[in-house]
Design a protein around this nucleic acid. Structure first.
Lengths: 157, 157
DNA sequence: TGATGTAGTCAACGTGGTTGACCAATAGCG
DNA sequence: CGCTATTGGTCAACCACGTTGACTACATCA
């Protein structure tokens, strides 16, 4: 992926470092969830929980957010519904829509995810300092040109 | 995944920024590969090409590197063999082993990947400066504790 | 009111993984 | 040197999670 003549950690391609960093955070989250008894949470649940945090979200919107087909998003919603984290609702102004809303259990999970994830990022701050973490965040945001817009769809799980 | 009250790009969870950054680099690589006529290269080929850069690599080692079963690694190798990028060899000192080596075409692909990827990272340097990119790399390496060891297995594609 | 587009679902399919079993080869031990 | 345990790799079957194309119900527009 990257031209590395004498591969050392400090000369690893950024892509791989991003992949390892992402995996480290997500795996850390899921290990901590399981430690607390949340045994049926899959990585794909994360983006859905976040998307439904403030208001019910349509299947089409979730599909776009996650870069998958409406059918696949619907299947994922079915799985989370069966697990008790989401509930399908009806839209009084558009009968085609079946927005999904967090259940009480879904909100509880989201709260735990927030807490655990805050700890994980705090661990980063502990190693290099909060200023450095904020700088990291700002640099990546700048390069990706995300200062003013929504994040693009991304699926990594 | 992260506690964000008023979600803005600059306060996005690091995990999601890493995911988007990774996706941006890998998708950029594959778009450029296709532009140059390399139409059958899949994201999973990347780690294999890199792993076989300097010497043939065993199926077991590839499986460990990529965090998958030997069977899955063998299937992937079969696919890359059929596409002409790898060739299975024999190990004269251990007949059980069937190390895989890059073919001429595999080396050509790896050279193109190196070139494209260097350009992609250069784009990052163009936006924020090479010093900033090196700093990014060093910071993530430090947090992940990778200064002195091999990268852990990671699969993201 | 008819045409067109959208939201969501259905059934079937394909891909890329895992699992458990197996075989051949190697390493180590008594 | 023979035996046992381990390792490298393969086999067949299975599973999860995506896609595809078709379809229905609903909304919008002229």
């Amino acid at each position: 992926m990257g031209q590395v003549n004498t591969p050392t950690p400090t000369s690893q391609p950024l892509a791989r470092l991003f992949a390892v960093a992402f995996r480290s955070l997500v795996d850390g989250l899921h290990v901590a969830l399981r430690d607390r008894g949340w045994n049926d949470v899959r990585p794909a649940f994360g983006p859905v929980l976040l998307a439904c945090r403030y208001e019910p979200t349509s299947t089409t919107a979730l599909a776009q957010l996650m870069g998958m087909t409406k059918q696949a998003a619907s299947k994922l919603i079915d799985t989370m519904d069966a697990a008790g984290y989401l509930a399908r609702t009806v839209d009084t102004s558009d009968a085609r829509q079946r927005p999904v809303a967090l259940t009480t259990r879904g909100r509880e999970l989201l709260a735990v995810v927030d807490e655990i994830y805050a700890d994980l990022e705090q661990e980063w701050a502990t190693v290099v300092g909060q200023v450095e973490v904020d700088h990291l965040r700002a640099t990546i945001t700048r390069v990706l040109g995300l200062e003013s817009g929504e994040l693009p769809p991304v699926r990594l799980w």
